[in-house]
Write a protein that binds this DNA or RNA. Structure first.
Lengths: 212, 212
DNA sequence: TTCCTTGTTGTAAGTTCTTACAATAAGAAA
DNA sequence: TTTCTTATTGTAAGAACTTACAACAAGGAA
């Protein structure tokens, strides 16, 4: 007697989970090969799914990319904003600032593969008005929160500095180092990130508790 | 009697000039629409030339992009290196450093269209080993020269700093601001660039002669 | 079990882009 | 003027990719 146990040819997933999986697969593709690897067929293969399904969930490349951006943004900027806005968080302003900085320069986040994704997204933001608007809104909000925290520290320490500028420069410094690392992976270690960031802040705000 | 003056249907150019024109057209395309606008036909049209001619000069997209990179690099990094290496240049180390910084934050160079080009190139560098090598070599050389100049200034002023780190951070800071401006054009003015750059340097090296 | 919903597949049409090549003509040389 | 070189054109083959769609089947409901 032959075994007649039916082996399903595919697994049926809940739409939300499938959508999320597809977006993650798209991110992995971007991380591997940049925009050149952002091909519908490749992404479908990466997700272990047919091409047809991908186009069932996303009307086109543009929509998928926007979703990728939203996901990346959420995991990144929005997470930081959330931390920042959590005013109940314990500790002095300086301690909270340190936690934020540590989050920004988290080695896991700063890995080159992640920048490959951001480079692709930036390249699109510059060109796509819709994405640009979304980015601008989220980013300004993030910088504003960061600036407010820096102002708090400055107030306590009676330092006469403008949080807005320092926040912007700090983020620019880190983005720039991030970029350098992506383009030349041996150029910068995590310790370099840490030193550069804290040195910059301390030049303006005085000694901060550096944990590393 | 009808006029029989022959009107040429196209102009024959010297190969070197034509090549350069085509590269410039490619750069204009990149500036307008990023990598998505880097299409052979569009570039040929932009140059006012047939598609066939473009492929006559460049074996493929990759070769053309490499040439674009070389041109961009030449106009940018190499020019700065040349200035730096021109040891005969007049002035104290501090004055020379100021001139270099002014060149780096030249408003004409920092215009968003230019970053669109760099964003596209960076996106390729990250993915293309050949370009990555070229970039790494040129960029390291540039940073080294900049670091040496900073060390000179530090020596004169008896400041105990490491030029390498300051050079890297300075460039990262400027790249990061450059990026922010490209993503949100109203975010940063040229004065902001100037202030941020000089403030950063002066925190390490003491007052520099700021001309603006 | 049987039915039903809809997540999923496979394919194919249609579009865009790259590459190759034979034919043409501009401009210099003789 | 005539000849010759080669820069330039136009087109077409074909490769790669996106999008649309009809058919199929997994898994829950009845």
């Amino acid at each position: 007697m032959q075994s007649r146990k039916k082996v399903p040819r595919f697994k049926r997933e809940a739409p939300e989970k499938r959508r999320a999986d597809l977006v993650q697969a798209a991110i992995r593709c971007l991380a591997e090969g940049g925009m050149a690897a952002f091909k519908m067929e490749r992404i479908a293969a990466e997700a272990g799914v047919s091409l047809g399904l991908l186009s069932h969930y996303f009307k086109g490349k543009t929509e998928l990319l926007a979703e990728v951006y939203r996901a990346a943004l959420y995991d990144d900027v929005n997470r930081k904003i959330a931390e920042l806005d959590d005013k109940e968080a314990a500790g002095s302003p300086a301690e909270r600032l340190c936690r934020i900085v540590d989050a920004i320069i988290d080695p896991d986040y700063l890995r080159p593969a992640n920048l490959t994704v951001w480079l692709a997204l930036w390249g699109e933001i510059v060109v796509n008005p819709e994405l640009r608007l979304a980015h601008r809104t989220a980013y300004r909000s993030y910088l504003k929160s960061l600036a407010a925290l820096i102002d708090e520290v400055a107030l306590v320490r009676r330092r006469n500095v403008t949080g807005t500028e320092i926040a912007r420069s700090l983020q620019a410094l880190i983005d720039g180092l991030f970029l350098e690392r992506a383009l030349d992976r041996q150029a910068i270690s995590h310790a370099d990130f840490h030193r550069a960031s804290y040195e910059f802040l301390e030049l303006h705000l005085g000694k901060l508790a550096t944990s590393a």
